[in-house]
Design a protein around this nucleic acid. Structure first.
Lengths: 218, 218
DNA sequence: GCGTTAATTCACCAAATGGTTAAATTCGCG
DNA sequence: CGCGAATTTAACCATTTGGTGAATTAACGC
């Protein structure tokens, strides 16, 4: 599912026509184009070219630019929700669970920069696409529930403070990771130092973990 | 300097030609247009119409769309730096200083939504405009220095923990405020609850303050 | 083989877009 | 007043853009 396009038919199926394959190719190239240039900046011709398909196919399968953008968004959310499934916060001790959640969020955003720019584009448009989505319920993260039980366990063990709202904490963890990466370019420019340098990146993860743990602990 | 355009010449100067006034009008309408639609989505015709001026004037004074965008960015940074000057973190006790910093950041973003979307646009473009800015040095926030002294005082008073990087903390405070507002639309859609409701907003400020204080306080 | 349907291509368009050429108008100043 | 420079306007343009109508081609069941 990565952005790298491989035109070579690896499987021994030299089918020249394949609706599914075409749709996936369009979705992948649309995701890259939208992520790179934003909704308004993205070019339908460019998406078709990236996918190596005729532009008309995009309209045949997805209807319009906005519909395509929504499809990309839904796919993007599905991807992160799937990745979150791999996390098993309920099987480890509360402190470690918090650590893992911060680390997971950080690394997911890091490895999926398109997630950030796509969400920024959607927010610029006041989530107009997402609001018309029928699959919007499925996008609610299961991590919030899980985080809630983690906080409960930590509280029971007399480790965590009481009164922590799991939604607020979830948003805060996302904030800390997201903003640093989303605004990396302007921050680096303004501070005149490379916040993407390995050392700075490691410091950031450490700082975020300390910040969150410093809050929930005690 | 607010977005509200008032075509009535309030001062008793009915000059029909005024280069400064025209430039300011363009800058203001450009800021609104860019903030609302992003760089690619913004229309030069629309900016001219908002300003009530001929489109050619934009090119006469600012050269190109990208140059205009940079001018807007520089102005936007100048505005927030000016607002930050009003804060006097060195005159109050460390804990209160942290509180004020969080509160200020929160309210500034809240009252200047264009700040968020403009920065998002610039980051989508990898800060390409800002990097060519000659005034980029002036954009470094004085708050980082100030925050450093606050942290030092807190440490001296045996209130704050040691080893807190002021840049990291400054970014974290910005993160917590920025992300919640920037991604409000998608978050509200996904969580199915209105994060803009007054109660939710108050909770957020309280949560962010607790989070930051819980960390710095020993 | 054959025909029906789905997948794909081709050629095309009206509207919009950033930008420009050149003329017109106003203002400050001697 | 009058003139030169600054400011503003009108008209225009080449290109790009999202989107379509209709023809074409390949796959699949019979």
């Amino acid at each position: 599912m990565k952005a790298t396009k491989d035109p070579l038919p690896e499987t021994a199926e030299p089918r020249s026509r394949d609706a599914d394959r075409s749709q996936l190719a369009i979705l992948a190239s649309a995701r890259d184009e939208f992520a790179q240039r934003g909704l308004a900046g993205a070019r339908m011709d460019s998406i078709a070219a990236r996918a190596g398909l005729n532009k008309r196919l995009i309209y045949y399968y997805f209807g319009s630019k906005d519909d395509l953008f929504l499809a990309v968004l839904e796919r993007t959310y599905a991807d992160i929700r799937e990745a979150e499934q791999q996390l098993h916060l309920d099987e480890i001790d509360p402190v470690e669970a918090i650590r893992q959640l911060v680390s997971f969020t950080w690394h997911y955003y890091l490895e999926h920069p398109e997630f950030i720019t796509l969400l920024n584009s959607e927010n610029l448009h006041c989530a107009a696409h997402l609001k018309r989505s029928e699959r919007i319920q499925e996008m609610n993260s299961p991590l919030v529930q899980l985080l809630d039980t983690v906080l409960e366990r930590g509280k029971r063990d007399k480790l965590f403070r009481a009164g922590v709202d799991p939604v607020q904490l979830y948003i805060s963890i996302a904030s800390l990771c997201y903003f640093y990466l989303s605004n990396n370019h302007t921050l680096s420019a303004v501070f005149g130092r490379d916040l993407r340098a390995p050392k700075a990146m490691a410091q950031r993860l450490s700082h975020m973990t300390d910040l969150v743990l410093g809050y929930v602990l005690h």
